[in-house]
Computed example of a mutant assay.
Amino acid sequence: MGKVLVLNASYEPLNITSWRRAIVLLLKGKAEQLEHSNRVLYADLPFPTVIRLRYYVRVPYKEIPLTRRNVLERDRNTCQYCNTKRDQLTLDHVLPRSRGGGDTWENLVAACVRCNVKKGNRTPKEANMNLLTKPRRPHSSLHFELLKCTQGNHNQEWKKYVIGI
């Protein structure tokens, strides 16, 4: 049937749950349905795709570690210069380390070996290579799961409740 996006009372994404758990939250009155699919469980109860909790739940902030895997996942395993999906991707420093560029979310992008070598020790502007997307820090630990669940035409109604995907 699919997964359901759960929002806090403040409309901030909390997690992704099963449709069964979402139905239980709706029936107990702990959540309200914001979006639904065209499939119906009962006469007046369509399958939910986005629900919002009625009461605010405090969630501790958890920083996402800067790792090679997380950078590649953020960039959807796609070269940020030529838009190709390859197995052999490298990490490229937008501002090269030799010019003071550090290992930060905003300075690292996924790049194929060919583009990384072509860019070399230059900035993208100097190499006349445009970035497809500006690199940035993911907003929440839920970011990567949301990326997976919204690929293609899946769960497009989630995009209006989530920043940065």
Score class of each variant (00 low, 15 high):
72 L>Q: 02
118 K>C: 03
76 R>Q: 10
135 P>G: 12
142 L>M: 07
23 I>C: 02
62 K>W: 08
109 V>C: 06
161 Y>S: 00
50 V>K: 01
43 A>L: 14
36 H>L: 00
63 E>M: 06
110 A>V: 06
74 R>H: 04
50 V>I: 11
97 R>F: 10
18 S>P: 02
42 Y>T: 15
51 I>N: 01
64 I>C: 03
77 N>I: 03
107 N>H: 12
99 R>H: 14
34 L>N: 04
52 R>A: 06
25 L>M: 13
25 L>H: 03
61 Y>W: 09
5 L>Q: 01
126 E>N: 09
22 A>I: 06
49 T>S: 15
36 H>R: 07
68 R>T: 13
116 N>P: 05
112 C>D: 08
89 L>D: 02
147 L>A: 03
110 A>P: 06
112 C>H: 03
109 V>E: 02
30 K>M: 12
64 I>H: 00
2 G>F: 02
42 Y>M: 15
68 R>I: 12
129 M>K: 07
14 L>T: 03
91 L>K: 02
119 K>P: 03
49 T>R: 08
149 C>V: 10
71 V>E: 06
22 A>Y: 02
10 S>M: 00
89 L>G: 02
136 R>E: 12
56 Y>K: 13
4 V>W: 01
155 N>M: 06
152 G>Q: 09
92 D>N: 10
110 A>S: 15
83 N>L: 14
3 K>Y: 11
96 P>F: 05
10 S>Q: 07
65 P>R: 07
156 Q>I: 08
25 L>A: 09
48 P>C: 08
126 E>Q: 14
39 R>D: 14
48 P>I: 06
153 N>G: 06
5 L>N: 01
76 R>H: 09
127 A>W: 02
83 N>P: 04
16 I>N: 03
163 I>M: 07
117 V>F: 08
78 T>I: 14
52 R>I: 07
113 V>K: 05
152 G>L: 08
5 L>I: 03
107 N>S: 11
121 N>R: 04
27 L>E: 14
41 L>E: 13
155 N>A: 05
152 G>H: 08
22 A>R: 01
128 N>W: 06
11 Y>W: 13
26 L>K: 03
59 V>K: 12
95 L>E: 13
164 G>S: 03
104 T>G: 08
46 P>V: 09
52 R>T: 04
67 T>F: 07
137 R>A: 13
87 D>E: 15
157 E>T: 10
164 G>T: 04
132 L>D: 05
145 E>C: 00
35 E>K: 10
106 E>Q: 15
76 R>E: 13
37 S>L: 03
79 C>G: 12
7 L>R: 01
66 L>S: 06
85 K>I: 14
81 Y>Q: 09
65 P>H: 08
59 V>A: 05
8 N>C: 07
157 E>S: 10
71 V>M: 05
63 E>D: 14
165 I>G: 02
51 I>V: 15
164 G>N: 07
128 N>P: 01
33 Q>C: 12
105 W>T: 12
49 T>F: 06
104 T>D: 10
61 Y>G: 03
102 G>H: 09
152 G>I: 10
128 N>H: 15
115 C>T: 04
